[in-house]
C-alpha cells in the first residue's frame, strides 16, 4: 500500500519520456523514471520516496533491446535481470546481476534500475565496470554515448531527465575468463546463486588477456573498480602476501562497518577472497 497518489505515464518513445520528465518537473511533480519499480514501490510505502509522477520506461523500444549488434552486446536498460540471465549472453553479468535480491524479484528489477539503485550494492554494475561498458543516454539535447566510468564514481552522475537507454559491451569482454563471488553475513555459498541478503562482499575478477580487472561491492559504501588496486594485483614483482596488504591500502573509501558486519571482518573476507582469486588465476593461460 503506497500511502499517497502519483500519476503514471507509460510513453512509447524515449523522446516522449524525456519531454514528459521535464514537463512534470516544471510542475514540481518530482517525476521518476520507473523501470521494474521495485524500489519506488518499496521506498514509497515507507515514506522514503515521494514521486508525484512516475514514467514507466518499459514501453520504449530502445530500452528493450538485448542482442549482439556488430560485435557489441547491447542491453536495454529496461531489460530485467532475469531476462539478462536467461539470455546467457554475458555470463559475468549473469552472475553479478543474478545475485541481486532474489530470483522472483529479478523478474522485475531492470538492469538500469539496479545500476541507479538507492540501495548501495548495485551488484550488476560490477560486470559493466570491468568490461569498458558504454552507456547510451537520451535527454533534451538528444542521444549521447559515454563510457560508464565517465559518469560513475560513487553513483551514476546523471542530469535531471537523463534517461538510460542502453548499455553496450564489446563482445570480447563477454567471453573472457572470470571469477566472481558473494558473501553475506549468514555465511557460506554453496551454489553460485545461493544466499539472499546484502553482500558483505561481492566481487568480480576478469582475466583480460593476462591482466586482472576487479570490481567490488559491499566492501566500501559503494561499488567500485580501482585501477590502483588492479595495478597491485597485476604486479608480478610483489609476493601474494604483500599484494593483499597493499590492496587493502588502495581502497577508495573506508571499509563499510554496519549491522551485517564489522569493517574488520569485511577486510578479513576481502583478503581471503583476493587470495582465493589470485590462486584461481594462477596457472591460467594469460
Amino acid at each position: 500500500m503506497i500511502p499517497f497518489d502519483f500519476e503514471y505515464y507509460k510513453p512509447t518513445s524515449a523522446q516522449e519520456a524525456v519531454s514528459l520528465f521535464h514537463n512534470l518537473r516544471s510542475q514540481e511533480k518530482n517525476p521518476m523514471y520507473y523501470g521494474g519499480g521495485t524500489e519506488i514501490i518499496s521506498f514509497s510505502r515507507l515514506y522514503q520516496l515521494f514521486p508525484k509522477a512516475v514514467i514507466d520506461v518499459k514501453g520504449i523500444p530502445e530500452c528493450n533491446v538485448l542482442e549482439f549488434k556488430n560485435d557489441k552486446l547491447v542491453i536495454g536498460a529496461a531489460k530485467t535481470l532475469s531476462q539478462v540471465q536467461e539470455s546467457n549472453l554475458f555470463p559475468l553479468l549473469n552472475q553479478c546481476g543474478g545475485r541481486v535480491a532474489d530470483h522472483t524479484i529479478r523478474d522485475k528489477i531492470t538492469l538500469g534500475g539496479n545500476i541507479c539503485s538507492r540501495i548501495p550494492f548495485r551488484e550488476a554494475i560490477l560486470a559493466l565496470l570491468v568490461s569498458d561498458c558504454e552507456v547510451i543516454i537520451e535527454n533534451k539535447n538528444g542521444i549521447r554515448k559515454v563510457p560508464l566510468e565517465s559518469i560513475y564514481t560513487e553513483s551514476m552522475l546523471l542530469e535531471p531527465g537523463d534517461l538510460l537507454l542502453q548499455f553496450t559491451v564489446e563482445k570480447n569482454y563477454t567471453v573472457m575468463p572470470f571469477f566472481s563471488m558473494k558473501k553475506t553475513a549468514d555465511g557460506d555459498v554453496d551454489y553460485p546463486q545461493d544466499r539472499i541478503g546484502y553482500p558483505l562482499l561481492s566481487g568480480v575478477f576478469l582475466n583480460n588477456k593476462g591482466h586482472i580487472r576487479a570490481a567490488f561491492s559491499g566492501l566500501c559504501p559503494y561499488p567500485f573498480r580501482s585501477l590502483k588496486l588492479e595495478a597491485v594485483l597485476n604486479d608480478t614483482t610483489v609476493s601474494p602476501d604483500e599484494k593483499l596488504n597493499e590492496s587493502v591500502q588502495c581502497l577508495p573509501a573506508p571499509i563499510l562497518n554496519d549491522m551485517d558486519s564489522s569493517a574488520q571482518y569485511r577486510e578479513f573476507v576481502f583478503r581471503n577472497t583476493l587470495a582465493g582469486a589470485l590462486d584461481n588465476f594462477e596457472g591460467v593461460e594469460f
Binding site: 503514471y8 519499480g37 523478474d107
Partner: peptide
C-alpha cells in the same frame, strides 16, 4: 508465465 511478487507491481503496470 513468470513469477512476480505482486506487492512490487502496480496494478496499472
Amino acid at each position: 508465465g513468470w513469477p512476480v511478487k505482486s506487492c512490487l507491481m502496480l496494478a496499472v503496470e
